[in-house]
Protein backbone atom coordinates (compact mmCIF):
# COMPACT_ATOMS: atom_id res chain seq x y z
CA UNK A 1 0.00 0.00 0.00
CA UNK A 2 1.39 3.43 -0.85
CA UNK A 3 2.23 5.64 2.07
CA UNK A 4 0.14 8.47 0.72
CA UNK A 5 -2.77 8.07 -1.66
CA UNK A 6 -4.48 11.12 -3.05
CA UNK A 7 -7.81 10.42 -4.71
CA UNK A 8 -9.99 12.86 -6.62
CA UNK A 9 -8.68 15.84 -4.70
CA UNK A 10 -10.41 19.09 -5.62
CA UNK A 11 -9.77 22.40 -3.94
CA UNK A 12 -11.93 25.49 -4.18
CA UNK A 13 -11.27 28.99 -2.95
CA UNK A 14 -14.14 31.17 -1.86
CA UNK A 15 -13.61 34.70 -3.07
CA UNK A 16 -15.84 37.76 -3.04
CA UNK A 17 -17.14 36.95 -6.50
CA UNK A 18 -17.92 33.31 -5.85
CA UNK A 19 -15.87 30.14 -5.78
CA UNK A 20 -12.78 29.39 -7.82
CA UNK A 21 -11.85 25.78 -8.44
CA UNK A 22 -8.10 25.50 -8.20
CA UNK A 23 -7.27 21.79 -8.14
CA UNK A 24 -9.04 19.38 -10.45
CA UNK A 25 -9.22 15.65 -9.71
CA UNK A 26 -5.70 15.12 -8.42
CA UNK A 27 -4.65 11.47 -8.19
CA UNK A 28 -1.27 10.65 -6.74
CA UNK A 29 0.42 7.75 -4.98
CA UNK A 30 3.51 8.32 -2.90
CA UNK A 31 5.48 5.23 -2.00
CA UNK A 32 7.78 5.18 1.00
CA UNK A 33 11.08 6.80 0.13
CA UNK A 34 9.81 8.42 -3.06
CA UNK A 35 11.08 11.77 -4.05
CA UNK A 36 8.64 13.58 -6.24
CA UNK A 37 9.29 16.90 -7.87
CA UNK A 38 6.14 18.97 -8.30
CA UNK A 39 6.74 21.46 -11.07
CA UNK A 40 4.47 24.14 -12.41
CA UNK A 41 4.37 27.82 -13.19
CA UNK A 42 3.26 30.47 -10.76
CA UNK A 43 -0.38 30.00 -9.84
CA UNK A 44 -0.66 26.45 -11.16
CA UNK A 45 -1.71 25.18 -7.72
CA UNK A 46 1.51 23.70 -6.36
CA UNK A 47 1.26 25.24 -2.91
CA UNK A 48 -2.43 24.49 -2.78
CA UNK A 49 -1.67 20.81 -3.33
CA UNK A 50 0.97 20.76 -0.60
CA UNK A 51 -1.20 22.64 1.85
CA UNK A 52 -4.16 20.37 1.34
CA UNK A 53 -2.05 17.36 2.31
CA UNK A 54 -1.08 18.90 5.66
CA UNK A 55 -4.53 20.43 5.92
CA UNK A 56 -3.21 23.94 6.33
CA UNK A 57 -5.18 25.55 3.55
CA UNK A 58 -6.30 29.11 4.18
CA UNK A 59 -9.69 29.38 5.83
CA UNK A 60 -11.47 30.31 2.63
CA UNK A 61 -10.49 27.06 0.94
CA UNK A 62 -12.62 23.94 0.60
CA UNK A 63 -10.99 20.57 -0.11
CA UNK A 64 -12.96 17.59 -1.46
CA UNK A 65 -11.80 14.05 -2.07
CA UNK A 66 -9.55 11.75 -0.09
CA UNK A 67 -5.99 11.84 1.10
CA UNK A 68 -5.03 8.53 2.69
CA UNK A 69 -1.94 8.58 4.87
CA UNK A 70 -1.08 5.00 5.84
CA UNK A 71 -4.72 4.19 5.30
CA UNK A 72 -6.24 7.07 7.31
CA UNK A 73 -8.20 9.63 5.34
CA UNK A 74 -6.70 12.92 6.45
CA UNK A 75 -9.46 15.00 4.93
CA UNK A 76 -12.03 13.16 7.04
CA UNK A 77 -10.16 13.68 10.32
CA UNK A 78 -11.33 16.24 12.84
CA UNK A 79 -8.91 19.15 13.18
CA UNK A 80 -7.84 18.06 16.65
CA UNK A 81 -6.76 14.62 15.38
CA UNK A 82 -4.92 16.12 12.43
CA UNK A 83 -2.38 17.64 14.81
CA UNK A 84 -1.02 14.19 15.62
CA UNK A 85 -0.09 13.67 11.98
CA UNK A 86 1.58 16.98 11.40
CA UNK A 87 5.21 17.43 12.23
CA UNK A 88 6.47 13.91 12.66
CA UNK A 89 4.05 12.32 10.19
CA UNK A 90 3.93 14.96 7.48
CA UNK A 91 5.86 18.20 7.66
CA UNK A 92 5.59 21.03 5.25
CA UNK A 93 8.21 23.69 4.69
CA UNK A 94 6.01 26.59 3.68
CA UNK A 95 6.73 28.78 0.72
CA UNK A 96 6.57 31.80 2.98
CA UNK A 97 8.66 30.40 5.82
CA UNK A 98 8.16 33.38 8.10
CA UNK A 99 4.63 32.18 8.68
CA UNK A 100 5.72 28.81 9.97
CA UNK A 101 7.62 30.33 12.86
CA UNK A 102 6.13 31.88 15.93
CA UNK A 103 7.16 35.53 15.92
CA UNK A 104 7.25 35.90 19.68
CA UNK A 105 9.44 32.91 20.44
CA UNK A 106 13.15 32.61 19.98
CA UNK A 107 14.42 30.29 17.31
CA UNK A 108 15.96 28.05 19.92
CA UNK A 109 12.72 27.48 21.82
CA UNK A 110 10.87 26.63 18.65
CA UNK A 111 13.42 24.16 17.38
CA UNK A 112 13.81 22.44 20.75
CA UNK A 113 10.05 22.25 21.07
CA UNK A 114 9.89 20.47 17.71
CA UNK A 115 12.51 17.98 18.88
CA UNK A 116 10.66 17.34 22.13
CA UNK A 117 7.54 16.49 20.18
CA UNK A 118 9.48 14.10 18.03
CA UNK A 119 10.88 12.21 21.02
CA UNK A 120 7.59 12.30 22.87
CA UNK A 121 5.82 10.62 19.99
CA UNK A 122 8.55 8.01 19.81
CA UNK A 123 8.41 7.50 23.57
CA UNK A 124 12.09 8.25 23.95
CA UNK A 125 13.61 10.16 26.79
CA UNK A 126 16.37 12.51 25.87
CA UNK A 127 18.24 14.92 28.17
CA UNK A 128 17.81 18.64 27.51
CA UNK A 129 21.47 19.27 26.72
CA UNK A 130 21.51 16.77 23.93
CA UNK A 131 18.42 18.42 22.45
CA UNK A 132 20.35 21.67 22.30
CA UNK A 133 23.32 19.97 20.71
CA UNK A 134 21.15 18.29 18.12
CA UNK A 135 19.58 21.60 17.16
CA UNK A 136 22.96 23.28 16.97
CA UNK A 137 24.31 20.58 14.73
CA UNK A 138 21.37 20.84 12.39
CA UNK A 139 21.74 24.60 12.09
CA UNK A 140 25.36 24.05 11.13
CA UNK A 141 24.23 21.48 8.57
CA UNK A 142 22.02 24.01 6.85
CA UNK A 143 25.05 26.34 6.67
CA UNK A 144 23.75 29.07 8.90
CA UNK A 145 26.52 31.42 9.95
CA UNK A 146 27.00 31.78 13.74
CA UNK A 147 24.31 29.27 14.72
CA UNK A 148 24.74 29.94 18.45
CA UNK A 149 23.76 33.57 18.19
CA UNK A 150 21.05 32.88 15.65
CA UNK A 151 19.38 30.52 18.10
CA UNK A 152 18.89 33.40 20.50
CA UNK A 153 17.18 35.63 18.00
CA UNK A 154 13.57 36.12 17.11
CA UNK A 155 12.41 35.35 13.57
CA UNK A 156 12.11 38.99 12.60
CA UNK A 157 15.78 39.49 13.37
CA UNK A 158 16.79 37.13 10.57
CA UNK A 159 17.05 37.45 6.83
CA UNK A 160 14.66 35.67 4.48
CA UNK A 161 17.27 33.11 3.50
CA UNK A 162 18.16 32.48 7.13
CA UNK A 163 14.55 31.93 8.10
CA UNK A 164 14.13 29.60 5.18
CA UNK A 165 17.05 27.54 6.43
CA UNK A 166 15.71 27.49 9.98
CA UNK A 167 12.42 26.05 8.80
CA UNK A 168 14.33 23.52 6.72
CA UNK A 169 16.31 22.63 9.82
CA UNK A 170 13.07 22.20 11.72
CA UNK A 171 11.76 19.88 9.04
CA UNK A 172 14.94 17.87 9.12
CA UNK A 173 14.99 17.70 12.93
CA UNK A 174 11.49 16.26 13.01
CA UNK A 175 12.45 13.49 10.58
CA UNK A 176 8.90 13.26 9.26
CA UNK A 177 7.85 10.30 7.17
CA UNK A 178 6.76 12.68 4.44
CA UNK A 179 8.47 16.01 3.90
CA UNK A 180 6.73 18.54 1.68
CA UNK A 181 9.07 21.34 0.72
CA UNK A 182 7.47 24.32 -1.03
CA UNK A 183 10.16 26.23 -2.93
CA UNK A 184 12.54 25.73 0.00
CA UNK A 185 15.57 27.17 -1.74
CA UNK A 186 14.02 30.14 -3.54
CA UNK A 187 15.73 32.74 -1.33
CA UNK A 188 19.08 31.00 -1.30
CA UNK A 189 22.14 31.45 -3.35
CA UNK A 190 22.98 28.58 -5.72
CA UNK A 191 25.85 27.21 -3.69
CA UNK A 192 23.79 27.10 -0.50
CA UNK A 193 20.92 25.66 -2.53
CA UNK A 194 23.12 22.80 -3.66
CA UNK A 195 24.17 22.15 -0.08
CA UNK A 196 20.58 22.08 1.16
CA UNK A 197 19.52 19.74 -1.64
CA UNK A 198 22.36 17.41 -0.78
CA UNK A 199 21.35 17.49 2.87
CA UNK A 200 17.72 16.66 2.15
CA UNK A 201 18.71 13.78 -0.08
CA UNK A 202 21.10 12.43 2.52
CA UNK A 203 18.37 12.42 5.12
CA UNK A 204 16.01 10.78 2.72
CA UNK A 205 18.40 7.91 2.17
CA UNK A 206 19.00 7.55 5.88
CA UNK A 207 15.41 7.51 7.12
CA UNK A 208 13.50 6.44 4.01
CA UNK A 209 11.68 9.75 4.21
CA UNK A 210 9.36 10.55 1.31
CA UNK A 211 9.83 13.92 -0.30
CA UNK A 212 7.47 16.15 -2.22
CA UNK A 213 9.60 18.94 -3.58
CA UNK A 214 7.66 21.87 -5.01
CA UNK A 215 9.48 24.14 -7.40
CA UNK A 216 8.94 26.13 -10.56
CA UNK A 217 12.44 25.38 -11.71
CA UNK A 218 12.74 22.22 -13.82
CA UNK A 219 16.48 22.07 -13.34
CA UNK A 220 16.14 22.01 -9.56
CA UNK A 221 13.44 19.36 -9.81
CA UNK A 222 15.73 17.36 -12.05
CA UNK A 223 18.50 17.44 -9.47
CA UNK A 224 16.23 16.51 -6.59
CA UNK A 225 13.61 14.08 -7.71
CA UNK A 226 13.14 10.53 -8.93
CA UNK A 227 9.61 11.19 -10.14
CA UNK A 228 8.24 14.30 -11.72
CA UNK A 229 4.74 15.70 -11.59
CA UNK A 230 3.83 18.49 -13.97
CA UNK A 231 1.02 20.71 -12.78
CA UNK A 232 -0.72 23.21 -15.04
CA UNK A 233 -3.95 25.08 -14.45
CA UNK A 234 -4.68 22.96 -11.40
CA UNK A 235 -4.37 19.67 -13.25
CA UNK A 236 -1.73 17.00 -13.44
CA UNK A 237 -0.56 17.02 -17.05
CA UNK A 238 2.16 14.46 -16.72
CA UNK A 239 3.53 12.20 -14.02
CA UNK A 240 6.37 9.74 -14.36
CA UNK A 241 9.97 8.87 -13.78
CA UNK A 242 12.07 12.06 -13.86
CA UNK A 243 14.67 10.71 -16.31
CA UNK A 244 11.98 9.44 -18.66
CA UNK A 245 9.98 12.64 -18.58
CA UNK A 246 13.08 14.70 -19.20
CA UNK A 247 14.34 12.49 -21.99
CA UNK A 248 11.08 11.97 -23.80
CA UNK A 249 8.35 14.29 -22.58
CA UNK A 250 4.92 12.95 -23.45
CA UNK A 251 2.75 16.01 -22.93
CA UNK A 252 3.10 18.92 -25.36
CA UNK A 253 3.43 21.30 -22.39
CA UNK A 254 6.31 19.36 -20.85
CA UNK A 255 7.89 19.12 -24.24
CA UNK A 256 7.54 22.88 -24.75
CA UNK A 257 8.97 23.64 -21.33
CA UNK A 258 11.99 21.47 -21.93
CA UNK A 259 12.56 22.80 -25.40
CA UNK A 260 12.35 26.37 -24.23
CA UNK A 261 15.02 25.79 -21.63
CA UNK A 262 18.15 27.63 -22.76
CA UNK A 263 20.61 25.27 -24.35
CA UNK A 264 23.74 26.15 -26.26
CA UNK A 265 24.51 29.64 -27.49
CA UNK A 266 22.20 32.01 -29.35
CA UNK A 267 24.47 31.86 -32.38
CA UNK A 268 23.61 28.18 -32.75
CA UNK A 269 19.93 28.93 -33.14
CA UNK A 270 17.01 30.57 -31.45
CA UNK A 271 15.25 29.16 -28.46
CA UNK A 272 11.97 27.42 -28.89
CA UNK A 273 9.21 29.35 -27.15
CA UNK A 274 5.81 28.41 -25.89
CA UNK A 275 3.56 31.23 -27.02
CA UNK A 276 1.09 32.81 -24.64
CA UNK A 277 0.94 32.80 -20.87
CA UNK A 278 -0.33 30.40 -18.19
CA UNK A 279 -4.13 30.40 -17.79
CA UNK A 280 -6.19 32.25 -15.24
CA UNK A 281 -8.54 30.21 -13.09
CA UNK A 282 -11.28 32.70 -13.64
CA UNK A 283 -10.99 32.28 -17.38
CA UNK A 284 -10.16 28.67 -18.20
CA UNK A 285 -10.54 27.48 -21.80
CA UNK A 286 -13.04 24.81 -22.79
CA UNK A 287 -11.68 21.32 -23.28
CA UNK A 288 -8.04 20.83 -22.51
CA UNK A 289 -6.54 23.62 -20.34
CA UNK A 290 -3.45 23.73 -22.48
CA UNK A 291 -5.17 24.09 -25.85
CA UNK A 292 -4.56 27.84 -26.35
CA UNK A 293 -0.80 27.28 -26.28
CA UNK A 294 -0.62 23.80 -27.74
CA UNK A 295 0.99 23.42 -31.17
CA UNK A 296 -0.74 20.08 -31.74
CA UNK A 297 -4.26 20.97 -30.64
CA UNK A 298 -7.05 19.56 -32.81
CA UNK A 299 -10.85 19.71 -32.68
CA UNK A 300 -11.36 17.29 -29.85
CA UNK A 301 -9.01 19.28 -27.58
CA UNK A 302 -11.41 22.23 -27.71
CA UNK A 303 -14.48 20.15 -26.96
CA UNK A 304 -13.67 17.76 -24.16
CA UNK A 305 -11.12 17.56 -21.44
CA UNK A 306 -8.70 14.65 -21.78
CA UNK A 307 -8.39 12.18 -18.90
CA UNK A 308 -5.15 11.16 -17.23
CA UNK A 309 -4.13 8.25 -19.46
CA UNK A 310 -1.51 5.57 -18.82
CA UNK A 311 1.24 5.86 -21.34
CA UNK A 312 4.54 3.99 -21.28
CA UNK A 313 4.57 3.68 -17.51
CA UNK A 314 3.52 7.27 -16.97
CA UNK A 315 0.36 9.23 -16.70
CA UNK A 316 -0.36 11.85 -19.33
CA UNK A 317 -3.34 14.13 -19.83
CA UNK A 318 -3.38 14.33 -23.62
CA UNK A 319 -5.49 12.80 -26.36
CA UNK A 320 -2.37 12.21 -28.42
CA UNK A 321 -1.20 9.67 -25.87
CA UNK A 322 -4.49 7.86 -25.59
CA UNK A 323 -4.49 4.77 -27.72
Amino acid sequence: MPQLEIRDLEVYYKVPFGTIKTLFGIQLDVEKGDSIGIVGESGSGKSTLGLSIVRLLPPNAIARGHIFFNGTDLLALPASKMKDYRGTGIFMIMQDPFNSLNPVKKVREQLIEALRIKYLRRNERVPEESLYDEVLKKLKDVKLPDPETIMDRYPHQLSGGQIQRIVIAMGLLLEPSILIADEPTSALDVSVQAQIIALIKELQDKYKMSLLFITHDLSVAYAVSEKLLILYGGRILEFGNTEDVMNSPAHPYTEGLLKSFPRGNYRDGKLYTLQGAPPLFTDLPNGCVFNPRCPYAFDRCYQEEPGLYDYMGRKVRCFLRHE
Binding site: P16, P58, P59, N60, M94, D96, N99, N102
Partner: peptide
Protein backbone atom coordinates in the same frame (compact mmCIF):
# COMPACT_ATOMS: atom_id res chain seq x y z
CA UNK B 1 -3.49 36.39 13.25
CA UNK B 2 -0.04 35.16 12.45
CA UNK B 3 -1.03 31.57 11.87
CA UNK B 4 -3.50 32.24 9.14
CA UNK B 5 -1.51 33.11 6.09
CA UNK B 6 -2.28 33.33 2.38
CA UNK B 7 -1.17 36.55 0.86
CA UNK B 8 -2.60 36.68 -2.57
CA UNK B 9 -5.57 38.87 -2.92
CA UNK B 10 -6.92 38.81 -6.45
CA UNK B 11 -5.53 41.85 -8.16
CA UNK B 12 -7.38 44.49 -10.17
CA UNK B 13 -9.88 45.06 -7.41
CA UNK B 14 -9.93 48.29 -5.49
CA UNK B 15 -9.42 48.44 -1.76
CA UNK B 16 -12.99 49.56 -1.28
CA UNK B 17 -14.26 46.36 -2.75
CA UNK B 18 -12.65 44.48 0.10
CA UNK B 19 -13.76 46.96 2.68
CA UNK B 20 -17.35 46.51 1.58
CA UNK B 21 -17.11 42.73 1.66
Amino acid sequence: DVDSFSKRVPENVSIWYYVIH
